[in-house]
Simulated assay, not measured.
Amino acid sequence: MLPLSVLDLSFVNAGATPADALQDSLALARHVDGLGYHRYWLAEHHALASVASPAPEIMIGQIAAATRYLRVGSGGIMLPNHAPLMVAERFKLLEALFPGRIDLGLGRAPGTDGITARALRRREVPSEGDDFLDRLQELLLWGGGGFPPGHPFGTITVMPAGVPLPPVFLLGSSDYSGALSARIGCGFAFAQHFGSSDAAEVLRAYRRQFQPSRLGERPHAILALAAVCAETDAEAERLAMSARLATLRRERGAYGPIPSLAEAENHPYTESDRLRMERGRARLHVGSPETLRAKLTALAAEAEADEIMIVSSIHDQAARRRSYMLIAEAWGLSVRPDPGDRSG
């Protein structure tokens, strides 16, 4: 079976605090480390009441230190918010501390609203435009030491020296990032959980167009999707009500904490609400272990994916951890020794 991985947005739950959400992320990472999951990626969002972590590089260090087997990375660093040199420094530092376990996933969006994005970038002229490609090129030059002779940046040493930049992945929900990933020869992760483009079409195109480079000899396509698993289809549908209500509210601009199951069950849905949630079913995969195994296997085969990455916004943390456990068991992942036991 394909590797399974986790995408964690550090969702804030109704009745809990953002600090609780960060601790929940650490607990979930330790949990899936022993279940056989391959990667654990952290997202970057700003000024959203529903997401606790604006700094994936800090969470990466904490989670890598608390786990033993997982590759830990960013899903992703929103590059327009950051100086490329600082990204190179921070991820080389992480790679030095946890060699062979760090990934650098990069996104084009700001991960926030326009006003907050402007505050992050300190742009006084909004018409400066999208400089993602310039920042990406500069970051790759910092990583490869390839500034041309005479370039003023050529005299700068990116510390820690002698440490490579971790593997680079571009993230996206359209064919733009897929085509760019193929052109520069890096990995690509498609966000099926919120993308409007056809995941299979985009990932297959990425694979066909891939050009080997120093970033990668072969394509690596990750299909990121939302899933909720429980012992039965009916119980999984019940647990998914919190995520469905949260999505409904986000579509209307309300980025609040993930509602409790009781709140979701008792919400006064209109007929329009129910139609919107029904249309969103293709983005949230729900069911028993057997149901989800069949769904995810079919999706991965159609998209020619190399890996599946799962995000789950279940309100109850015990149920969330159990969801990942049931999926791992159905997928046939091998349970690993206790990550706390360093004797092996």
Rank of each mutant, 00 (worst) to 15 (best):
L7N: 11
V12M: 03
A14Y: 00
A14C: 00
G15E: 01
G15K: 02
A16H: 10
A16I: 00
T17F: 03
D20T: 11
D20N: 10
D20H: 10
L22F: 05
Q23K: 14
A29Q: 02
H31I: 01
D33V: 09
Y37N: 12
R39Y: 07
Y40W: 00
W41A: 01
W41Y: 11
L42M: 07
A43P: 06
H45F: 04
V51E: 05
S53N: 11
P54F: 04
I58P: 00
I63W: 02
A64M: 03
A66T: 01
L70N: 05
R71Q: 13
G73M: 07
G75A: 12
L79M: 02
P80A: 12
A83N: 06
L85C: 13
L85G: 12
E89A: 08
E89H: 08
R90A: 15
R90S: 15
F91P: 00
L93G: 09
E95I: 04
G100A: 10
R101N: 11
I102S: 12
L104V: 03
G111R: 02
T112I: 06
I115A: 15
L120T: 06
R121P: 09
R122V: 11
E124F: 13
P126L: 12
D131F: 04
F132V: 00
F132Y: 14
F132S: 01
L133G: 08
R135S: 14
L136G: 07
L136T: 10
Q137N: 07
L139A: 04
L140D: 14
L141F: 08
W142C: 12
G143Y: 10
G144C: 10
G144Y: 11
G144N: 13
G144Q: 13
G150A: 01
G154Y: 00
T157L: 13
M159D: 09
M159H: 09
G162S: 09
L165S: 02
V168Y: 09
S173E: 07
S174F: 03
R183D: 15
R183K: 15
G185N: 04
G185I: 03
C186E: 01
G187L: 04
H193A: 09
F194Q: 06
G195A: 12
S197H: 07
R204W: 05
R207A: 02
F210A: 05
F210D: 02
F210P: 03
E217W: 00
R218L: 09
A221I: 05
L223E: 00
C229P: 14
C229G: 13
A240Q: 01
L245T: 04
A246V: 07
A246M: 08
A246R: 06
T247H: 08
L248C: 09
R252M: 14
G253W: 04
G253Y: 03
S260I: 13
L261I: 12
A262C: 02
A262Q: 08
A262M: 05
E265F: 12
E265K: 13
E271T: 07
E271N: 04
S272W: 10
S272N: 12
L275Q: 14
R276K: 10
M277V: 08
R283C: 08
H285A: 09
G287V: 01
T291S: 15
R293I: 11
A294D: 14
L296G: 15
L296V: 14
T297Y: 01
T297H: 08
L299A: 10
D306I: 06
S312P: 05
R322M: 07
R322I: 04
I327A: 03
A328F: 10
A328K: 07
E329H: 01
E329F: 01
G332N: 12
V335K: 15
V335G: 13
R336Q: 14
